[in-house]
């Protein structure tokens, strides 16, 4: 790690002020990505702003068909929340399978989506559920939020405060673990909503998380695993690495999607 100064503001407003005052400041939430990155000397922030004491970033509320989760809510809190389990069990299940228990005890929703790791789990749920990312400046539709590998629509000094997930009729998430890292080699989140079916795919895409619209159309017509059989998943723009080529990932997208749909039954 390079040397840096550490700050722990008591509110989001103070955090924002620190970011504004220090050009090379970076936010740390749970630190599950930030600290390994610092350890490898891949980042060199002059200031580290810890959001831990920002009480206004925590908590889970369910009302009017929406689950709102504070950005600093830990994965384990989401996984074990009775409210989330009741409203969107697939989301609780997703959170309960991120990393390992010790990671879930520290890692946060806001940290995960702000980082937008192409193999992270939460972004697929955000896309499939049509979530809204609430920041200190504005509200951003998930579709507009994830802009590329480790890239988001967040601007300098903008901090995620919460994510609003509309409650779907049915939803399920199926993840195929990369054998070493246990990140998603492919993760597929399927949500059946009043407005149709949405399918979010993580792990597979060269540009990060994406919606599989062909599957959405097929599943909107017939919400059954067989409906996916006829969908051609192109290997174009899919990742290739030692854990699987594009054809393999294309196959996994179909298999995971079918299993997710089957889980919705």
């Amino acid at each position: 790690m390079y040397a840096f100064e550490y700050h722990r503001p008591g509110s989001v407003a103070d955090a924002g002020a620190l970011l504004k005052a220090n050009e090379d400041a970076k936010i740390i939430a749970g630190g599950m990505t930030m600290i390994p990155t610092l350890k490898q000397r891949l980042a060199m922030p002059g200031e580290l702003v810890d959001l831990r004491d920002c009480a206004d970033l925590k908590g889970i509320t369910v009302s009017g068909g929406t689950v709102t989760i504070g950005a600093m809510t830990k994965h384990d809190t989401v996984a074990s929340s009775a409210e989330v389990k009741g409203a969107i069990p697939a989301l609780a299940g997703l959170a309960g399978n991120i990393g390992d228990p010790a990671v879930r005890n520290r890692g946060t929703l806001g940290g995960s989506i702000a980082n937008n790791d192409p193999a992270a789990d939460y972004p697929s749920a955000c896309l499939a559920l049509g979530a809204t990312i609430v920041t200190t400046n504005r509200e951003i539709a998930a579709e507009d939020f994830f802009t590329g590998l480790f890239e988001t629509a967040l601007e300098e000094g903008e901090i995620i405060t919460a994510v609003r997930f509309p409650v779907p009729e049915k939803a399920a998430y199926k993840k195929f673990d990369q054998p070493a890292s246990r990140y998603a080699l492919v993760g597929v989140f399927v949500a059946k909503t009043a407005g149709g079916v949405r399918v979010g795919v993580t792990g597979a895409g060269q540009d990060g998380v994406f919606r599989q619209t062909d599957m959405e159309a097929a599943l909107s017509a017939n919400f059954a695993p067989e409906a996916i059989d006829g969908v051609m998943v192109s290997p174009d723009r899919l990742n290739v690495d030692i854990h699987g080529d594009a054809a393999y990932r294309a196959n996994l997208i179909k298999v995971m999607a079918k299993r997710a749909v089957a889980d919705c039954a």
Partner: peptide
């Protein structure tokens, strides 16, 4: 050094965390 092996797990406020992935100041 990639937060995976778990040899460093301790309890912080009663829950398991990887002490190699947390700053002392945190």
């Amino acid at each position: 050094d990639t937060s995976q092996c778990g040899a460093c797990v301790v309890h912080v406020d009663g829950r398991s965390v990887k002490s190699c992935t947390m700053l002392a100041v945190m």
